[in-house]
Write a protein that binds this DNA or RNA. Sequence first.
DNA 1: TACATACTGAACCATATAGTTCAGTGTCTA
DNA 2: TAGACACTGAACTATATGGTTCAGTATGTA
Lengths: 118, 118
Amino acid sequence: MVQYVSPPLDLSFAALSDATRRGIIDQLGRGDASITSLADKFQMTLTGMKKHVQVLERAGLVVTQKVGRVRTCKLRKRGLKAEAEWIEAHRKLFEARFEALDEIISEMKQEGSDESAS
Amino acid sequence: MVQYVSPPLDLSFAALSDATRRGIIDQLGRGDASITSLADKFQMTLTGMKKHVQVLERAGLVVTQKVGRVRTCKLRKRGLKAEAEWIEAHRKLFEARFEALDEIISEMKQEGSDESAS
DNA sequence: TACATACTGAACCATATAGTTCAGTGTCTA
DNA sequence: TAGACACTGAACTATATGGTTCAGTATGTA
């Protein structure tokens, strides 16, 4: 039996880095949708929307199925699982590496005169 | 007082979409590091590494500070917080939209003859 | 059968990304 | 002070991305 392997995090994080695609996910959370209805909702050409959906599909976040002339898009189960796991595992590191005074000082500098520039 | 506003998710998800940058985060989780040491570790030119660090910095995941001739990079507190929140909020949707039979069928089709192609 | 609908694919464009090399600048250290 | 070290910036390359238009193909409907 073929086991579906989660696409690399590269693809899913890249998919999530676009606000339109995050919006598509929101939308699909409210119900499955065709390419056309998504294109209308996001004021984009069909072709443009199809590309976004393909990106989400390759990233393993969305599945589509064509019935007749309509391709219906829906969220894929286990979508975001690997991503959530990576992030949760690493958030601990972020918190752990924190040293209060240092951080406050370096952030103040960053916000102010931007000492981080050369 | 200046409030640091979390950079848009676009920037942080894009930053996380590169395996080298996720590796840098892993590395910084083990301890702060200079650009040179990271460049060595990832077998990359200094200039190349500097660019990756800049991407992480603009995404609000890393802070850097230059002391003398050495720029030290460290994980930024609250890094990944907004990202984790977005993902957790949406995972619920993914699970909720799941309908067992449909999903199994469409995934089997996807894995097999790839019905999703035109 | 004829027309409309829903998608598909090729081609193009502008911009961004991931990397490089090379030529600096500024900071230690002997 | 001379040389090494750590970075910085400009410029260049190849490829990817986000969008478009235009010309199809396949399907549903009057």
